[in-house]
Design a protein around this nucleic acid. Structure first.
Lengths: 182, 182
DNA sequence: AACTATACGGAGACGCTCTCCGTTTGGCAA
DNA sequence: TTGCCAAACGGAGAGCGTCTCCGTATAGTT
């Protein structure tokens, strides 16, 4: 890639990240990202053929944080319930970090053709690690996809309604208790 | 209201209901509703100043079915778990009846200014009735708003990803067990 | 039959995503 | 250094969406 192209690409992602974080996916227009990054619309669209592909690039960095969060949650000192709840809380918090991300990623969970497919795999694997670690403490037959959808759904609701952390926490407790063995 | 206006209004709602049910909120344009109802765009927008207000009118009829569903679920012959699960399943099914409705109604739950505010009240009251009836069987401190958000979130996920009924059922079981007293 | 409040239709304003194509430029080879 | 051209650029505008404005038509009353 030519040096000027690389510079423009980096600036676009940087500007877009700030806008998306502040206003959410829908409220940011591609024009304003182009203006903010001081490039033409054509340049923006050559780097990112759709708005969703730009969003995907913006989310790239923090998708890597998922596995760290799993490591942190799975501390053997805590009870299974505490470990699960820590993970669900962190997971939901990460999904709501960017407005609109939770709903989009959760909707893409079953669709390999989505621009977010790589992110979905990361999330599913993380939930599978949690299931493997807590195993016998969980209700039989729980799947990574179920946890991803349950928490993704909660995160989407929290995001849409701008719920305070304690409202989210109380719903995640209900989900966690449902996930634990009877 | 003048007779011709009433006729047009009725025809608009009827046409819009068919379109929304078939294609979902986003995929239906106001222009095609106007064409379908054989009125001009101006007429459509005088009756329904925004697309959301039209959707609200379309949902009017089946919002009334909620209370019937509560009556049906609260049969004293069944266990608390069965009653709760029946209600959650019916509730989720009603929310997914129109594509896009679950996410919209759930997002409006805390917002009195939303065009869907009346529907939200109906839903919250229904969940309150269930809480009152099952009371001691439920985990202490459960609120109607929490159930509405939990099930609304699940219904939105199911709607977005077009999940089969059994995938929804298994998630609702997890939620139901979390809602029951430990 | 005449009158007027009410309702109608559709052109078009405005904003959005995305495309097309003439112009410019970075990086390399002579 | 100079010349070349593939690569990258910019921005006008196509196409589609919601919603508005205003001149025209008509229902219902007198």
């Amino acid at each position: 890639m030519r040096a000027d192209a690389q510079r423009n690409r980096d600036r676009i992602v940087e500007v877009a990240r700030a806008f998306f974080r502040a206003k959410g996916f829908d409220a940011v227009s591609m024009d304003e990202v182009a203006k903010g990054a001081e490039v033409g619309a054509g340049t923006l669209y050559r780097h990112f053929p759709t708005k969703e592909s730009l969003y995907d690039a913006v989310l790239e960095a923090w998708a890597e944080k998922v596995n760290e969060a799993v490591d942190r949650a799975l501390s053997p000192d805590a009870s299974a319930r505490e470990q699960l709840l820590t993970w669900l809380t962190d997971y939901a918090a990460m999904l709501t970090e960017h407005k609109g991300a939770a709903a989009r990623i959760t909707a893409a969970l079953g669709d390999p053709g989505s621009p977010f497919a790589a992110k979905c795999t990361t999330y599913l694997n993380a939930n599978q690690r949690v299931i493997d670690a807590l195993d016998s403490a969980l209700r039989p037959g729980v799947e990574a996809m179920q946890i991803s959808r349950l928490v993704g759904g909660m995160a989407a609701v929290a995001d849409n309604s701008e719920l305070p952390a304690d409202a989210v926490a109380s719903m995640l407790e209900i989900v966690a208790d449902g996930l634990l063995a009877p």
